[in-house]
Design a protein around this nucleic acid. Structure first.
Lengths: 223, 223
DNA sequence: AATTGTGAAACACTTCACAGCC
DNA sequence: GGCTGTGAAGTGTTTCACAATT
């Protein structure tokens, strides 16, 4: 299934790991822009991002040669380029499903600061939650999900519903045209290929941390 | 620096990727235990966890031969073994720092259900938050951090404070003996090696999802 | 017959080292 | 001289394929 034809060499497959680092670079660059820094080297960017300079150069090179040898990268132009690559140069909307404690916290977190991806609507199944206002958005009943997604042009979704409801909601989100889901439910979502799911599971994270905390202890003090 | 001496063969380094999957297996096994299933094959476990059967067998084999060929794995004994490996066979406590919306949501999420890792104390810098009660725990001022960690024997911390405060708090946590930090602040923490940090950054996750949502779109409908 | 445990191959990602360019 | 861009080497992880075991 691999076709290493190097006809025009453009558009080789970009590693997922690279994609996940681009927003990190962008965040640093935006801070630099505020500080009116015009040029930055990969070494300095490495110091500020915690990613090695070789890695940074390689990541950026996948998309073309943005730097100037002997000089560095232009902060403003690189930031612009990264925003464009990520699709953040035009407004990107996300719907939030689930207005429990976690959902509410996520909505507030996202809307209080100015973020590249904005939550544009909030849904909940519970009639008791519908009508509540969270950071200027009124919680809507699930019925209007498809219509609102179409109307707002939202591409992403944040899923913060209880486990049992998650798969069903995910199906509707995909049907409605959502292409990326950030899933906080402790459920392995089944979605068609082409839809990207990012899983965040608090319990799992804590439990894997426990491994290092428990085992590692005896290494701290020898003897 | 590699010393592939196979003297006693035990204790080869365990891949981080493996450690992160163990809690997934454990979760499935615990559900199976409730359903009174006694034996499970790696193929069936694969179906239920979304991880391939070869991967499961390899992961488990790092810690010894837990299965029976031709039969499968004993659900109860494997669950017990995994809890022991992860250090979850005795109570594991976590302190939560930051009682904002996110921190509150995390505390409630964790304490409402019975989790393997339990939040045992909540701290906040803001005097207005101190004294609030969240799921049976009273929010304490940051001053008592070290003392409470020592008293409770907590090994883990959940960090949900604003970016600027994160590094300072992390330093105190490490000093106090915390060995794993789940960090929700948008900051790259500097910690001594031996302390494990797991970063969860909502904005970064959404922004990398945006890449697939934006680019992928034209592939959904051809022509 | 079924299923585990595991070397070997394949793949993914990072680091090294340096040629190329300003 | 300094810094980028990139093949090559190295490391980490997954998949394959099958011998071993019940």
């Amino acid at each position: 299934m691999s076709l290493p034809v190097d006809g025009m060499r453009r558009r080789q497959r970009i590693p997922e790991a690279t994609i996940k680092r681009l927003p990190v670079y962008l965040r640093v660059l935006e801070r630099l822009q505020e500080e009116e820094v015009a040029i930055i080297s990969s070494a300095e960017l490495a110091r500020k991002s915690g990613i090695t300079s070789e890695q940074i150069r390689k990541d950026l090179a996948y998309f073309g040669a943005f730097g100037t040898r002997g000089v560095g990268y232009g902060v403003a132009s690189l930031a612009r380029r990264l925003r464009s690559i990520l699709g953040l140069d035009r407004p990107m909307g996300a719907v939030l499903v689930g207005a429990g404690h976690l959902g509410t916290a996520l909505a507030r977190y996202n809307r209080t600061r100015r973020q590249s991806v904005q939550v544009v609507a909030i849904f909940d199944q519970d009639p008791g939650k519908v009508g509540q206002v969270i950071e200027d958005l009124t919680v809507q009943p699930l019925e209007g999900l498809e219509e609102t997604i179409a109307a707002t042009g939202a591409c992403l979704a944040i899923l913060a519903v209880p486990g049992p409801a998650a798969q069903k909601v995910a199906q509707r989100l995909v049907q409605a045209g959502i292409e990326g889901i950030l899933n906080f439910s402790p459920v392995q979502l089944k979605v068609p290929s082409g839809v990207q799911v990012q899983q965040i599971d608090l319990s799992l994270e804590l439990e894997s941390l426990a491994y290092y905390a428990g085992q590692g202890r005896h290494r701290v003090q020898e003897g």
